[in-house]
Simulated assay, not measured.
Amino acid sequence: MEIKPQAVAIPRSTEHLERGKYGPIFPKTPACYGFTIVANVKPGRADTIRGYGQRIAEALKADPGFLAPLKLHYLRWVLFDDDTRFMYQGIFDTDFDKYTEDAVVLFTRSGINTAFENLEGFPLDWKTNTPAFVKFLRDHQCTSFLEYGEYPYFTSDEIKKALKLKAAFTEMLEQMQ
């Protein structure tokens, strides 16, 4: 099976998209699902946001499966404009509705609050008010107009399985020598 890179141009209008519980469901692209938000940081909170990054890194060191329920490919957090603005970018395997609901459950159970609490306008009742959490995300979402995948439409689980198979095959070849 030959895997060919693919790209999809995403139309500006969302009127044609299926509606989910929280609004339009963007189609799966060669990069899978994802979203980007950009929001203003509450004054003086940039270091607190950086601290959340450290907490997530430590949680993953202690439990490499900590974020597994989110079916992530990657996350990117960026502070910019002299630490006054924050960008969150995530690519994952589930649609937006499931991802946001799973994120609320994960962070509520873990006891780690979200870095988003340090963003202007973020609802402090996000753990019990998923619609308000989603509204914040939708209000701050910067929708892509092009998405590309070098290995299109593969899930994170499929990629991990392929890497395990490669490692096992490499080990077998090394043992044969």
Rank of each mutant, 00 (worst) to 15 (best):
5 P>V: 14
5 P>Y: 14
7 A>K: 14
9 A>I: 06
10 I>S: 08
11 P>W: 01
13 S>N: 12
13 S>Q: 04
13 S>R: 09
14 T>M: 15
14 T>W: 15
14 T>E: 11
15 E>F: 13
15 E>T: 11
21 K>A: 15
22 Y>L: 08
22 Y>P: 08
23 G>C: 12
23 G>P: 06
24 P>I: 13
25 I>V: 14
26 F>I: 13
26 F>N: 09
27 P>Q: 11
28 K>T: 09
29 T>W: 03
30 P>N: 10
31 A>Y: 03
35 F>R: 03
37 I>K: 13
39 A>W: 06
40 N>R: 07
41 V>G: 08
45 R>A: 12
46 A>I: 04
47 D>E: 04
47 D>N: 03
48 T>Y: 14
50 R>V: 01
52 Y>S: 01
54 Q>N: 11
55 R>Y: 10
59 A>K: 08
59 A>R: 02
60 L>P: 01
60 L>K: 12
66 F>K: 03
67 L>K: 04
68 A>L: 09
68 A>P: 01
68 A>T: 08
68 A>F: 09
70 L>P: 07
71 K>V: 12
74 Y>H: 15
79 L>A: 07
79 L>H: 01
83 D>A: 02
83 D>L: 06
83 D>M: 07
83 D>P: 00
88 Y>A: 02
90 G>C: 07
92 F>R: 02
93 D>E: 09
95 D>K: 07
96 F>N: 00
98 K>A: 09
98 K>M: 08
99 Y>A: 01
100 T>I: 03
100 T>A: 11
101 E>P: 00
102 D>T: 00
104 V>M: 06
106 L>A: 02
107 F>G: 00
108 T>R: 08
110 S>W: 10
111 G>C: 06
111 G>M: 04
112 I>G: 01
112 I>S: 02
112 I>V: 04
113 N>A: 12
114 T>W: 15
116 F>D: 05
116 F>W: 13
118 N>I: 03
118 N>A: 11
119 L>S: 02
127 K>N: 10
127 K>E: 10
128 T>N: 11
130 T>P: 00
130 T>E: 07
135 K>S: 03
135 K>A: 13
135 K>F: 13
136 F>H: 10
136 F>M: 11
137 L>C: 03
138 R>Q: 10
138 R>T: 00
140 H>I: 05
141 Q>F: 04
141 Q>C: 04
142 C>R: 05
147 E>L: 01
147 E>K: 05
150 E>F: 03
151 Y>V: 10
151 Y>W: 14
155 T>R: 11
158 E>T: 11
158 E>P: 02
158 E>H: 14
160 K>I: 15
162 A>Y: 11
166 K>P: 06
167 A>K: 06
168 A>Y: 09
168 A>H: 09
169 F>V: 14
170 T>L: 13
173 L>V: 06
173 L>C: 12
175 Q>A: 15
177 Q>G: 14
